[in-house]
């Protein structure tokens, strides 16, 4: 199993974290990564607009398991998985609008579980870090190490 890299995009479309775990994707300059993150932010918004069907209304059954009804149900979700011939990109948008992009091999199972675990790491080591300012690039050593451990254990 190969995880190529992880991007975190803030709610205003800025790239706040990028990390390469495994070679296999093109090397770009950090400026290029910033531009890609910004344009992806816009494309994600367009994929929401293009939704041909109204999102499935919530049935009481599906709500039963959730701790509290989210104000975001009933809205189109936007891009979740992008497939290309070389990689597969999973996008997970949190309720606060931060996007986690994880690039893996095309035939990678259970990426959604992984990305949620990464979100947990983010919540633990970045959001709980008193020296971190939101919307700013993430420079937290513990988060880096946590990611390393997590990705290595799984591969």
């Amino acid at each position: 199993m190969v995880v190529f890299c992880l991007f975190i995009i803030s709610k205003s479309g800025g790239l706040i974290y990028n990390r390469e775990f495994h070679a296999g994707m093109s090397k770009l300059t950090s400026n290029d990564y910033l531009m890609l993150a910004g344009s992806f932010h816009g494309m994600h918004a367009i994929t929401k607009q293009l939704c041909p069907v109204p999102p499935t209304p919530v049935t009481p059954l599906s709500v039963a398991g959730a701790p509290a009804p989210s104000p975001f149900i009933g809205r189109p979700s936007g891009l979740e998985v992008l497939e290309s011939s070389h990689f597969r990109m999973q996008c997970f948008q949190t309720l606060t609008g931060i996007k986690f992009l994880l690039f893996t091999e095309p035939q990678q199972p259970n990426v959604d579980v992984m990305i949620r675990r990464i979100y947990e790491l983010y919540a633990d080591y970045v959001m709980k870090n008193p020296f971190y300012t939101v919307e700013m690039p993430i420079r937290c050593e513990k988060f880096d190490r946590g990611l390393d451990g997590f990705v290595k254990v799984r591969s």
């Binding site: 290309s84 011939s85 690039f103």
Partner: peptide, 23 residues
């Protein structure tokens, strides 16, 4: 999307599909 995929995956990479929760 096609340009982004080509930038990230190399020139011989092609964009195939994307999925949202609805379509």
């Amino acid at each position: 999307l096609r340009n982004m995929v080509q930038k990230l995956g190399g020139d011989d990479d092609t964009f195939l599909s994307y999925r949202t929760a609805e379509y």
